[in-house]
Design a protein around this nucleic acid. Sequence first.
DNA 1: GTATAACCGAGACGGTACGTCCAGTCTTCGG
DNA 2: CCGAAGACTGGACGTACCGTCTCGGTTATAC
Lengths: 225, 225, 225, 225
Amino acid sequence: MRQQEDLEYADEPKKRGRHRSLEAKTAILKATLQLLERESLRKVTADAIARRAGVSKATIYKWWPNKSMVALDAYLAGTTERVAMPNTGSAQEDFTQQLKSLTAFYTSTLGRLFCQFIAEGQSDAAFLASFRERFLYARRDAAKIMWRRGVDRGEIRSAVDGDIVLDMIYGPIVFRLLAGHGSLSDSESEAIVETVFAGLRRLDYQRPAKNKTIGHIVKRRRAHL
Amino acid sequence: MRQQEDLEYADEPKKRGRHRSLEAKTAILKATLQLLERESLRKVTADAIARRAGVSKATIYKWWPNKSMVALDAYLAGTTERVAMPNTGSAQEDFTQQLKSLTAFYTSTLGRLFCQFIAEGQSDAAFLASFRERFLYARRDAAKIMWRRGVDRGEIRSAVDGDIVLDMIYGPIVFRLLAGHGSLSDSESEAIVETVFAGLRRLDYQRPAKNKTIGHIVKRRRAHL
Amino acid sequence: MRQQEDLEYADEPKKRGRHRSLEAKTAILKATLQLLERESLRKVTADAIARRAGVSKATIYKWWPNKSMVALDAYLAGTTERVAMPNTGSAQEDFTQQLKSLTAFYTSTLGRLFCQFIAEGQSDAAFLASFRERFLYARRDAAKIMWRRGVDRGEIRSAVDGDIVLDMIYGPIVFRLLAGHGSLSDSESEAIVETVFAGLRRLDYQRPAKNKTIGHIVKRRRAHL
Amino acid sequence: MRQQEDLEYADEPKKRGRHRSLEAKTAILKATLQLLERESLRKVTADAIARRAGVSKATIYKWWPNKSMVALDAYLAGTTERVAMPNTGSAQEDFTQQLKSLTAFYTSTLGRLFCQFIAEGQSDAAFLASFRERFLYARRDAAKIMWRRGVDRGEIRSAVDGDIVLDMIYGPIVFRLLAGHGSLSDSESEAIVETVFAGLRRLDYQRPAKNKTIGHIVKRRRAHL
DNA sequence: GTATAACCGAGACGGTACGTCCAGTCTTCGG
DNA sequence: CCGAAGACTGGACGTACCGTCTCGGTTATAC
């Protein structure tokens, strides 16, 4: 557990007995990730992390405000995500490939953390904000590159807002990941991207004369979504 | 949860023994809903529900496996959702109006329960399943009517799977609700539906000669989404 | 408990309505005894009795004020105690034999109920009183016959109060039964009775000149008993 | 219960980590005793103890397996028993005085705990064992000193087993305390000790020719004790 | 016969305590 | 003076049992 020490010797500014804390930090993150591979965030306890890391619980709470934040840090620091960031010359192809690889990862044990972070965020606004800043936006920025390439190339209509583009592509998958309805296979990823690009509209459809009648608000139960 | 039971009530020859107290049931659901209007699901305790309902905690646990299920029941039984189920003659218009009204509701206090149910489901598979069956599918079935009208009318391409249609329309909103990135205004709803119908593709785009180069898998951190 | 009722049956003008089910009563007592053979009084629940007797819990509580009373009734009605009530011509021998047989019974599964009744009585004065009246005094009256024979025969000093005699003989055994210190073998029974008859005093002991010094009250911990 | 620990305290090299809070321990025992002065052991709840002691329930259950053990500890630690441990020069006088003072105490509010401990022990063997070891034997050892003095002085027959002596003296009182038959006055204490010393046997009684007839086992109900 | 009690089985209910669990904080000592 | 060890508070959890209650249905006497 304390093996890494040797590696870090190199550029460590030598303070008297101070490099201990970095070691503890590392051990905590590592232990957290290992535990999260086997249990859900809810079931991983701070005690378990401390025990496994050979660290005091107080040390954990010294640097992190709560368990979720530790998990977020552990995830960000420890996970080298094998996700495609393709550049095929076609934005649609790029997104398709990326969505496939992303889906594959997010259905894996560790990938499920994404859902658990979202879940945790529902009762902890500060955490959700942190999750957005440090996790979500980073990935979205990367994805926006693919989008921009498509726009620059004249492949994607420039009128459409980039955020909407991303949410249209990733939203359906996220929804399915979280709610568990609908499959997450490669062919679904393909179909989603294809439909997002092509649109729902039948091009030869002739819109009838404007019907201004507004749909009446119906008072009924369980009608929407 | 005990839906079947309810159905059997109809012609059931009255059961022996004291009947389940409808009063207690009602009081529990009502109290739960009232508490959920002020606190998040996580913070509402079984004790609080029992106290407010003037009911024994044992009675709650007799009929529900945990408080999440009570909350789901309370929500389904108690919430008469004021959501548009419009029929304007145009599927796009229908979806736009519906998305607006849905967004308005889901950002309200009680509507936030949707997010909390999803969150709860991440660490309780049984609950998530129940949530899908009793909440999600009901709403999706209703929404599919609007979609089918669009298809029948020749407005929506029949080649596209209905579930994908729904996820493309609702997914982005759900994503934003849960992750809190991106606004949920009426104009966003309009833009989303418009883009879903129109597609991203620039129609006059000429696809260049096939480029078979597959996007290289890049080993990097935080690259996707 | 409701014994009086039974006595009144005789000339009672038959009451209107359905009569108390003797079957139910019997079944309850029988079931109770069977359960008490395997579990302690504390662990036998009213539900278990009702279930085993094929009877409603309400029926139990209609006729008995609580579980302990049921158990007492069950014991009194159902246990045919095989205890010697000897008449050998010698009071000491009578008591010795009786104490042996009593000890044998009270260390048996069902005999242990005696201890449990005593225990229950410590937090239920009404029950303890009932236990005394219906259980204890009956047995003591019987034992007093042996004592009186001894007195009449000139074997036992007539100056000694009968109740003290009984408590001196049975007290040690009861104490051991309840506290679990000290053995309960036949030889112990013999020794106890012999010592009770012979007394502790060494007959040739010459009491020294009266020492009126009263033992000082010592304030100390755990000094007595 | 944790006696061993206490013994080791002496030269124990201080343990790592936060030490057990003596404050909490004291508060718990004190609160327990105060509550027991007003309510029976059965009615005193762990919650009440925790609340009164200003302590978390978890802390109680960390150090004691159940509330009975807490009560035993509280009693042993907190009760400075004012019981005579007299030394008058006469064993009979010693026992008489001691029995009086013991009876006085055991009929007091706190003294009643003795009965409740015995009661609790009937459905908790581990507790009963603990009660014997820590409460009963300590007192008996002390009482044996009085007995031995009597033997050494030639006052008490050396042939009689010390444990039987004690049970003969204390058994009747314990029996009366628990079953509630018979008075517990000073004169009873005197009479008991006097009779134990003098024996039941009428000294001028001429035993008739041996009658070997063994008392027939009578099958009858409620015959003994 | 028909009304009218009083009973009974089934089983839901309020109440109360239980003993467990975990988050997050606080205290002590060793290096 | 930092950090491990670990005890502590607070509060929810879900369970268990008690004794009561309500229901539909079942005998029995009384009219």
